[in-house]
């Protein structure tokens, strides 16, 4: 397996408060990795560092073997736009746009023509069971529907890595399971690597592997490796 993203000894403090202190992690191509940990452990911060949103105070972040933490903001923005997809807990849809336009947005951002972008966005609605929702605004969608639209948006540009930060956090169990089902299914189908931050074990159970972040340090454990 090839490593897609690797974090080495990341440290980051927000003012006086340390969020990461020496976190290391590597993500293999095509895998679904769950990053778990209690609230305030730094797991979202770790995700933001891996995705090039935040720059660590110390340590290195490598994507496809290239350091990205040293890139200027514009390059990191471009990287996020081109190579990464994102799904957050809530509130990520642009309220003015229709569901369809929200899904097409990453393509539009990459300069795809409007008609082509919408044509690419449309099949996702059938795939995610959202038929007939194309013209709705985010205010007219239920939480689960909005989250599925967000998922489609995260995957529509066929990113290499999908970052999901508590994607089911605002949903009930059943809806959450459906979203996870679709996310993991679609990602596997596309060969997209998924980094999934969650504090829920049942969500993490969709992953191939998990990492635990505690007090700003990450550790990965393979259950197999410690078995007697």
């Amino acid at each position: 397996m090839t490593t897609v993203i690797e974090a080495r000894d990341l440290a980051l403090a927000f003012g006086e408060t340390p969020a990461l202190r020496g976190a290391s992690l590597s993500v293999e191509a095509g895998e679904v990795l769950a990053v778990m940990g209690p609230s305030g452990s730094g797991k979202s911060t770790l995700l933001h560092c891996l995705a090039g949103i935040l720059v660590p105070d110390a340590g290195e972040v490598l994507f496809n073997g290239q350091r990205i933490d040293t890139l200027p903001e514009a390059r990191r923005s471009a990287l996020r736009r081109d190579k990464f997809g994102f799904v957050f807990q809530f509130g990520q849809l642009v309220p003015e746009l229709t569901a369809e336009e929200n899904v097409a947005l990453p393509l539009l951002l990459n300069g795809v023509r409007r008609s082509a972008a919408l044509a690419e966005a449309r099949p996702w609605f059938a795939r995610l069971g959202l038929d007939g929702m194309q013209g709705r605004r985010s205010g007219e969608l239920s939480g689960g529907q909005a989250q599925r639209v967000a998922l489609a948006r995260g995957l529509v540009a066929r990113p290499q890595v999908l970052f999901a930060d508590e994607p089911t956090g605002a949903l009930d169990s059943l809806t959450g399971e459906q979203v996870m089902e679709l996310m993991v299914g679609a990602a596997r189908e596309q060969g997209t690597t998924v980094v999934l931050v969650t504090h829920e074990a049942r969500v993490a159970a969709y992953a191939d592997r998990e990492a635990i972040v505690r007090d700003g340090r990450a550790r990965t454990l393979r259950a197999e490796s410690v078995a007697p």
């Binding site: 736009r81 990464f84 947005l105 990453p106």
Partner: peptide, 12 residues
Amino acid sequence: RPFAMLRLTGAP
């Protein structure tokens, strides 16, 4: 929030 999200996803 939506603007912040857009920025995170790489919108300049």
